[in-house]
Design a protein around this nucleic acid. Structure first.
Lengths: 191, 191
DNA sequence: CTGATTCTTGACCTCAAGTTCAAGAATTGA
DNA sequence: TCAATTCTTGAACTTGAGGTCAAGAATCAG
């Protein structure tokens, strides 16, 4: 009972996520969020408690969407190397095509809140761990299938790939397509 | 003539750099800067014009110090691979030993201001380009000396290494020593 | 329809950020 | 010593951030 919400919470969280992604946590004011979501400031506070809590939901949503996407990309038909390359290129191209270079919400958050905000740091850590695990799984499968040389260690390589991804998404703030694609080529040469 | 300054501008810029490094640009208020430098807010504005200008000087100082350090590390006696490894380990260990995980001012700035602030973006870009150039030079020399295999392309490898460094300095916000060192090992395996 | 409940709206509040400024203090040249 | 100059200090100002609240609107149970 009671008056029904005039918005879909998930939709609002998604719109808030976009706003935070573009503007950063500190850089996105309640007024910005109200505009981005079309919901009044008061209603947002009523529904989510605080800016920080809304951000938490947005981070979670980002993590869920990201890991779905990663999984989908890695599991298309092809060799491990082909799929990982496709995934990296997708990430970079998406970054470059966006109207504003905003990189990766998780990386941005790690840098903005890392250390200072334990919950945010944990959330980022969980996302990263998940991605590493998905990469490692795909590499193990590739090894079984024979398209990944046996001398490479899937876990170690997955960590390095994660590191490369993070680097790429930061470098995408300052460098252009050709440079980034060349980095991908070099990074995958050893696989 | 006139009343003499009661502080050394360079010292103040350095202290401001430390404050910005730890707190980020937006996260460091004029009051914070006054406390960090021991100079009154008014004097800071009198001497540097604005917070943004002070930040600019701090960024420049960071860049100069960083490139000196890079050059010094890479040119110690040893093979290219040894020196690059020493350099990466130094960066990571310094990060981990610091009382607060603050990563790299340039990477932090790229993420906080990248795109939004052209001057800051340019400054970061210059620093990155300089580091890439130093790495490429060292690799070329290694190739001449015979300790770098001829099939590796110094420029491409330098870009990848830069990307790896950026990644490491972001990952240092959420991961610990063993993980990071393992990433270094894997990254350098192909050299 | 009434009451209980839950939402929306917009005004309002507090606090701090970023900056400016007026007044006074230290220095040098004449 | 006086004037000119350059610095310091702290108060004061403006703006917006982050959040609260009272009033009213929408829904449902009875």
């Amino acid at each position: 009972m009671g008056r029904p919400k005039e918005f879909e919470p998930d939709t609002v969280v998604e719109q808030a996520m976009e706003a935070f992604w573009t503007g950063g946590y500190a850089g996105t004011s309640p007024a910005d969020l109200a505009e981005a979501t079309g919901v009044g400031k008061g209603s947002l506070y009523h529904a989510f408690g605080s800016k920080r809590e809304l951000f938490g939901k947005a981070l979670d949503m980002y993590g869920a969407a990201g890991s779905e996407l990663t999984e989908a990309y890695l599991n298309e038909p092809g060799t491990a190397k082909e799929r990982i390359r496709a995934y990296l290129e997708f990430l970079v191209d998406t970054d470059l095509d966006a109207p504003v270079r905003r990189g990766c919400l998780a990386a941005n958050t790690a840098l903005e809140l890392g250390g200072r905000d334990p919950e945010a740091t944990d959330a980022v850590r969980r996302m990263t761990d998940r991605t590493i695990e998905l990469l490692a799984e795909r590499l193990r499968r590739g090894r079984r299938d024979g398209d990944v040389p046996p001398e490479i260690d899937p876990e170690a390589q997955a960590h390095l790939l994660m590191n490369t991804i993070v680097g790429l998404r930061v470098m995408a703030r300052t460098y252009d397509g050709p440079v980034l694609h060349r980095i991908i080529d070099t990074a995958l040469a050893g696989l």
